[in-house]
Amino acid sequence: MLRETCAIRYVTPLREGGSLPGIVEADDLGTYVMKFTGAGQGRKSLVSEVICGELARRLGLRVPELIRIRLDPVIGRGEPDQEVQELLKASGGLNLGMDYLPGSIGFDPLAYRVDAAQAGRIVWFDALVNNVDRSWRNPNLLVWHGDLWLIDHGAALIWHHNWPTAAASAARGYDASDHALAPFGPDVPAAAAELAPRVTPALLAEVLAQVPDEWLADEPGFATPDALRVAYADLLADRAATIGERVTVGAPTPDRASQAPGWLTGRPDQPSGAAR
């Protein structure tokens, strides 16, 4: 289970995208980027963050520590921004924290080189979880102490927004043409050979055990949180076995509106779902 702490001070919002995460200080003296259950995408975004982040970590990719973080909405009373106040009021209880990496900078392909092996591992992982939000428009990669760190996986696992069609959605391939690391010649076959055998039932069970029951409860079609965990594990196991053969890297699309969902981009004119 992820370790747990309590937020004691709301510091500032981070206004990239539509989820409005915020920087908070906690009673363990740590500083975290907090993602809220009351945000527009709801708890499924937090489920995706935990599954993807903890899976990536176990596959040897760098992800900031994820924690369970309790919020008392009273800490937002002094916040002058009405939107932030409403978000805090709607998010009392258990939320998700990500370790804040002080001094980190956003990934710039012109300033930071990535070898084909590392690029391949990240592209293969994003294909596994169907991450639609690591494109050249919005890499969601940080450079910290000279290393590459993966962040923001709330838009992955797109199929869990519609479980009746999840199997068909998860069976699709992955177009990495717009991926932030596509220009580095990612060696996806080598990554698949290395990583796919490590996505075992035991590993998936360990990862899914990190997701709090209350974020999995009351999902239509599933009697218990554990039944839902099994559904996630089955889809990821099936996808891991073959997704390396179904990754395509072509020419990037022209600069145009992102195909990510509107709740992610913060633009109401964007579509409510994304296909990849």
Rank of each mutant, 00 (worst) to 15 (best):
G60C: 05
M98Y: 06
Q259E: 14
F36D: 01
L208C: 05
R267P: 04
R70D: 05
S19F: 00
I122H: 03
T165F: 04
L2G: 08
L59R: 04
Q41H: 14
L110T: 15
A190P: 01
N130M: 11
P109M: 01
W159N: 06
R256K: 01
A155N: 12
W124M: 03
T5W: 06
G18H: 05
V123A: 04
Q82K: 11
L142Y: 13
A127H: 00
R68V: 07
A167Q: 11
P252T: 01
A170L: 07
A237R: 13
R246H: 11
A180T: 04
V47P: 03
A260R: 10
A170M: 15
I69A: 01
L181Q: 11
L94S: 04
R267C: 06
A156N: 01
G22F: 03
V230D: 07
A240N: 12
H160N: 15
H179R: 05
D234T: 13
V188P: 14
G78D: 11
D178W: 03
E65P: 03
P80D: 11
W124Y: 15
A233H: 09
G76H: 09
L71A: 01
Y232Q: 02
R239E: 07
M1F: 00
T12Y: 00
P80C: 11
V123K: 09
L228H: 06
Q85K: 13
E83D: 14
G53N: 03
T12N: 09
R68C: 14
A274M: 01
G106H: 10
T200F: 04
F222H: 12
A127K: 00
G76V: 05
A119M: 04
A192V: 08
L88F: 09
V114C: 12
A191H: 12
W215I: 08
A26C: 15
R3A: 10
A202M: 06
H153V: 04
S19D: 10
G262E: 00
L59Q: 03
V199E: 13
G97H: 03
S104I: 01
L203G: 06
V132I: 14
Q41L: 12
D213Q: 02
H179F: 09
L157R: 05
W144V: 02
T200C: 00
E206F: 08
A202L: 15
D213C: 02
D269E: 15
A202H: 01
N131Y: 08
L208P: 03
F36W: 12
